[in-house]
Design a protein around this nucleic acid. Structure first.
Lengths: 332, 332
DNA sequence: CAGAAAAATTGAAACGTTTCAATAATTTGA
DNA sequence: TCAAATTATTGAAACGTTTCAATTTTTCTG
C-alpha cells in the first residue's frame, strides 16, 4: 500500500510532474484549467507532498522552529510556549516543543531530534550541568542553526544570544520588600542546581539581606513543601523568598500544616507570577516575569538571526520584571 | 556554506558512501579499522545525516509520534504529556507535541505539520466543532497514519480508538457525593462547547441531581471566576460541581471575594485532580483522572496499531477515575 | 492567416541518503 | 601456495520532490 506521490497525481491528470509541482508551489505559470484539474485530482487522491522530499538547497522546507523547555509542568513554561507560538505564527513559522524534564541526556536528545527534523532555528532553556560538554550546542553551530537561550550559561563557549530578565535584580527587589517590612529572619528557598537562575536569584537575595539563610529546595510544589518540612523545623523564620511560585505554594501548604498563618506568622514571596498565584486564598506577592513577552522576544531574535545574512553578534536581552505586592507579605 | 554530507565523509575517509552508510546504520559488515577511521572523521567533521534524506520505503526514519493537545496551560495536559513521553521513550519513539489552543484551524494545522514531519502515529485530543469537516482525520487515514483520540468524537465517521475515562460516571460520582451530603441546590459550572467531555459530564451531573442548574463556564481559572461572578449573583447555591479543577479554583476565589466560606457556605468539587488541587488552603475534593496512565495507554495503543500488520479494530479504552474527598465539601 | 511573442508544459538533473547485487580483498584449509 | 570460502567494499539505482532550460502550445499583431 504505497503512499500517493506527485507522480500518481501527474499521471492521473495527464500532465508532467513538473506541472503538478508548479501548482503545488503556487507558481503562476499554470493555466487555470490545468490548475483546476490538478487541484481536483489532488483532492480526490488526498495527496500531500512528502515534506521530507521537498528540501533542496535554498528551499528549506516548511519553516519550523524548535523550543526545548525544562519541564512541562511549570506554568511558567506554558506562558513562554504560548508567547513563542504567537510570534512564530505571525511569521509563518511552526513551533515544535520538546521538554527535557530536567535530564541532560534528554535535552541533548531533544536537540538532536529537532536538528534531524530540520528546524530552522531553536530556542532552548538549557540545563546547567557539569557533565554538559556542550556538544549539542556545537552541533547546532556546525549545522548553522541559529539558537537563542532563555537562560544564560556560565561558560563563554557558546555564542548564543540570551533572552531573560534580570534575575538578580528581581530577587533583590523581592527581598528588599521584606526587609523594608521589617523582616530580620529571611530564608530563601533556592532553586535546583541545574538552573542558572538559581545562582542569580541567590545573589539577589543576599545583596538585599546578607544574613538570609539559603536553603536548597527545587522548582516544584513538592520541593517547596518538603523544604519547609525538612529544613525549617522550628527554625527562626518570619519571611520566605521562594525560587518560584510553585515552591511558594508548596511552602505555604506546609506552613499551614504546621499551624502557621500567612502572612501573620510568615510572609511569603514567590517568583514568576504564574496565573494561579493571584487566585489563591492568600494571593501571592511575587515577581512578575513577562513570560509571554520572553517567548515572543526569543522567537523574534532567532528569526532575526535566521534572516540576516551577516553573522549577527550575540546579544543579551533583559526584559523588565517587577514586584507585585499582594496579600502574602505583611509588616513585621 | 554547504552542510556536511555523507559524501564529504566518504571522500575524506577514502571510501565509498555505501561504506559510510553501513557504519551509520550499524551494519556489521565493516572492518573495525575502517569503521574507526570513518567514525573519527564523522566526529571531526561534525557530520550528522540529514534525516529528511533517510526515508525510503521500509526505513521510516527516526521513529516519531505526534501529540496534539487542546491547551498548554492546563496541568491536566502536562500530565498526559509526561505519561505519553514516558511510554514513547520506553519504545524508543520520540514525541512531538503541539497545542491547538482551542482553535480548530490550529488543530488542523498541527496535524498537517506533524504529518509533514513524517510521524509514525498520532495522539490527539480533538476539538469538537460543527465546522469540523474531519478532513484532517481523513488525511491521517489516507496517509495510513494510525491515531488515537483522548476524547471521543460524536460523529461515527472516524474509526479511531479512544482512550479516556468514563466522564459521565465521574461527574455522577462527584454530584452524588454532594447529594449524599444533603445538598439541594447544586450548580454545575460546565465546560467549553468545544469539548466532548462537557456533554458527558453534564449528563453525569444531571443523572445524580436532576434539578441541578447548568451554567456555562469554560475550562480556565478565569472562566470559573467569571461564571460565579456573572451567573450566581445572589442565586441559591450550596454546592458547585466544576468542569475541572482550574474552574473550581477560579470559582473559589470569586466565592471568597463575595465573603463566602468554603466549605461552610458552599461546597466545591473539581475534576481532574491536578497537583495543585491538594496544595490549596482548602484542599479540593475532586475526581482523580489517571492522566499519566492515559498518556501511556494512548501511546501504547497507537504503537500497537503501528506494529500490527492487520487492520486492528478500533477500541474504546476507559480507565478508572475515582472521587477523592478532601476539605472543600461538607455536610449541609 | 502567418509569424512573432508570450505563456504553458515538459523532461531531466539534482538533493542526501539507503539498499543490494556485484566485485574485491582477506582468511581459511589442505 | 592455491583455490575456496568468507568478509569487506563499491557503485548504481531508488526514494519523492524542486528547479530550470528547452520545447510546445496559445495568443497576439498586422
Amino acid at each position: 500500500m504505497r503512499r500517493t506521490t506527485i507522480k500518481d497525481v501527474a499521471e492521473k491528470a495527464g500532465v508532467s510532474i513538473g506541472t503538478v509541482s508548479a501548482v503545488l508551489n503556487r507558481r503562476d505559470s499554470v493555466r487555470t484549467v490545468t490548475r483546476k484539474r490538478i487541484l481536483n485530482i489532488i483532492d480526490t487522491l488526498n495527496y500531500r507532498p512528502i515534506e521530507a522530499a521537498r528540501r533542496r538547497l535554498g528551499s528549506p522546507s516548511e519553516k519550523t522552529l524548535g523550543l526545548v523547555i525544562k519541564e512541562i509542568h511549570n506554568p511558567y513554561f506554558a506562558d513562554i510556549i504560548v508567547g513563542a507560538q504567537e510570534e512564530a505564527r505571525k511569521h509563518h513559522y511552526r513551533l515544535l516543543v520538546m521538554s527535557s524534564e530536567q535530564v541532560l541526556s534528554r535535552e541533548i536528545d531533544a536537540v538532536n531530534v529537532l536538528v534531524a527534523k530540520d528546524i530552522d532555528g531553536l530556542i532552548i532553556n538549557p540545563l546547567v550541568d557539569s557533565e554538559s560538554d556542550f556538544t549539542h550546542f556545537a552541533d547546532l553551530e556546525a549545522h548553522n542553526i541559529p539558537y537563542v537561550m532563555l537562560e544564560g550559561l556560565q561558560k563563554g563557549e557558546t555564542e548564543a544570544s540570551v533572552v531573560d530578565i534580570d534575575n538578580e535584580k528581581g530577587a533583590y527587589d523581592a527581598t528588599r520588600h521584606l526587609v523594608e517590612l521589617g523582616h530580620q529572619h529571611i530564608v530563601h528557598l533556592a532553586g535546583p542546581a541545574y538552573s542558572q537562575h538559581t545562582l542569580e536569584r541567590c545573589a539577589g537575595v543576599l545583596r538585599a539581606a546578607p544574613l538570609a539563610r539559603i536553603v536548597h529546595a527545587g522548582a516544584t510544589l513538592k520541593d517547596g513543601y518538603n523544604a519547609v518540612r525538612d529544613e525549617l523545623e522550628g527554625a527562626l523564620c518570619t519571611a520566605l523568598v521562594c525560587y518560584n511560585d510553585l515552591v511558594a505554594i508548596g511552602a505555604m501548604r506546609q506552613l499551614q500544616d504546621q499551624g502557621k498563618r500567612i502572612p501573620e506568622d510568615v510572609s511569603v514571596v514567590g517568583f514568576d507570577d504564574i496565573e494561579v498565584a493571584s487566585y489563591l486564598s492568600v494571593p501571592l506577592t511575587t515577581v512578575r516575569v513577562p513570560k509571554r513577552e520572553m517567548g515572543r522576544k526569543a522567537i523574534a531574535t532567532v528569526l532575526e538571526r535566521i534572516h540576516s545574512s551577516v553573522e549577527s553578534p550575540s546579544t543579551r536581552i533583559l526584559l523588565d520584571a517587577e514586584l507585585v505586592v499582594r496579600s502574602s507579605t505583611k509588616k513585621r
